[in-house]
């Protein structure tokens, strides 16, 4: 082998190394690990029974997550009714699925209040509340919109994200079910989530 051939081979080897190193370095930036991704955060909340819960409530099983509040006249009761019907239809298929109803109005929704509210619809749905500062963290983690709207009588209502978030057993965001989405489509998404989890 002459010197020229060796040189070409060396340069080729360098090129391969550059591509590998560059790829390994750039990969996490191109495809960030979900650990720091959407829906991730640290927060200390309580469930409707007063037990502490945090971000690990989404780990180990598929979850459906909804943000609402008890002073909500339509979207929240409707969504809870939908969730209850999903559990009913899925039956044994949905045994590992958990559903969370996290309040965006922690000042008014105590554990007891939210507990009665969600339990009326289904014992498969867990109400979650907590310190407003901690609720703010989970709201931020999920990019949820929750805006107080003052009313004439001095009261307030809230504009809020009305979608249900689907979370896999690793606690990663998998998709959403829109408000008023067709039941069959919603069930398809849930079955898909369960199969992936």
């Amino acid at each position: 082998m002459n010197l020229k051939a060796i040189r070409i081979w060396l340069w080729a080897a360098v090129a391969v190394v550059v591509v590998i190193v560059g790829g390994v370095t750039a990969w996490p930036r191109l495809f960030p690990a979900p650990v720091d991704g959407f829906g991730k955060g640290d927060y200390a909340l309580i469930d409707q029974a007063g037990n502490p819960v945090d971000q690990t409530m989404f780990v180990g099983h598929p979850s459906a997550l909804f943000f609402g509040f008890t002073h909500c006249p339509e979207v929240c009761p409707t969504t809870l009714a939908e969730m209850a019907s999903w559990f009913e239809t899925l039956g044994d298929e949905g045994r590992d699925l958990k559903a969370y109803f996290v309040t965006v109005d922690p000042e008014r929704d105590t554990a007891e209040i939210i507990g009665d509210y969600v339990s009326f619809m289904s014992d498969r749905i867990t109400g979650v509340t907590g310190d407003p500062a901690e609720i703010a963290k989970i709201i931020k983690a999920w990019g949820v919109s929750a805006e107080r709207v003052p009313m004439e009588n001095g009261d307030y209502t809230m504009n809020h994200t009305a979608s249900v978030f689907l979370v896999n057993s690793r606690g990663d965001f998998e998709g959403t079910i829109a408000y008023g989405e067709n039941t069959d489509t919603a069930l398809g998404k849930l079955r898909n989530l369960i199969a992936k989890s």
Partner: peptide, 12 residues
């Protein structure tokens, strides 16, 4: 109208 859930202070 719709039945209200426990503790819900509003109805439609």
């Amino acid at each position: 109208t719709r039945a209200t859930l426990p503790n819900a202070p509003v109805g439609g």
